[in-house]
Simulated assay, not measured.
Amino acid sequence: MTDAQWALIEPCCPRRATPQAGAGDPRKHPRRLVLDAIFYLVTGGIAWAALPHDFPPHQTVYGLFRRWVRAGSWAQIHDALRDLVRVYEGRDPAPTAAIIDSASVRGADTVPTRSRGYDAGKKVNGRKRHIAVDTGGLLLAVVITVAGIQDRDGAHRLLTALRTRFSTVGHIWADGGYAGRLVRWAHAVLAFGVEVVKRTDDLAGFQVLPRRWVVERTFAWISKRRRCVRDYETLPEHHEAMVHLSMIMTMSRRLARTGDW
């Protein structure tokens, strides 16, 4: 990462903690170098043991990654950067509207059977990402499930997480897969107004649909990092952390280029 990116990320990092036995001691290595190793892995899609020798030992790097997953630190860093981006763009840090969607991701052989499933519609065996983004495409909430779960069922967990984190969000845009009882449940239980943006059936081929294209672009941002193109994580919470890391890299680069933060 550049000096400007590190200046943005360093204040958001948690304080150093006493390392767990056998996990490596990150205090022996500059924290910036450990984070560089994690970013390198997320970008290149390599295995932890394949990290180049220029970086700290892979046990140390993975140990820090795992501890920060358990502490929720990646989500905290992500949320702090998202708020900075929204303020820089002249918006309030608290969003008032969101767009939701899901995408199935193929799972590698490192994904256990108990946390993977088969999406018959997309013919994908793996996991499914359910995400909510603001009107600019910044990530607000993410939920990881087996790929076989219906979008409506996964959206119950996603919208609950969104309401827990943001009391200001009142309006949701979604595609036709979320129509029906979910719309009524979201309004009655969570006080969300869900607007379904349907595709016009009389037009063939690709269409840019209002609002829905924003969340599709976010999926593209996430998949720019090879570790997120396919799911290699044994634990769903590690896959969620990879999604946060991809967006952390995207937002820190965006802010670092401006130099006005």
Rank of each mutant, 00 (worst) to 15 (best):
Q207E: 00
R31I: 08
G121S: 05
R257S: 08
W68G: 01
G117C: 04
V142K: 10
D36M: 04
G107C: 15
M249K: 13
R165H: 06
D92F: 13
I131L: 09
A23P: 01
K224N: 14
G176C: 07
W48T: 05
S167H: 13
Y232G: 12
A161K: 01
E233Y: 10
Q59H: 13
R212E: 00
I46G: 04
F166V: 08
R226C: 06
A23R: 11
P26W: 01
A132Q: 02
W185K: 07
P57N: 01
A80Q: 07
S73D: 14
R230C: 15
Y40C: 08
G126D: 06
R16T: 14
V111C: 07
A80K: 00
I172S: 08
E240K: 15
H239F: 15
H29M: 06
K128A: 00
A98I: 04
W48I: 04
A256Y: 02
W68K: 09
L159E: 04
P19H: 04
H171P: 05
G193Y: 09
R27F: 02
A108C: 14
Y88A: 13
L209Y: 03
W261H: 14
A37R: 09
G45I: 13
H130C: 00
D36C: 04
R82N: 11
D201N: 11
H244E: 03
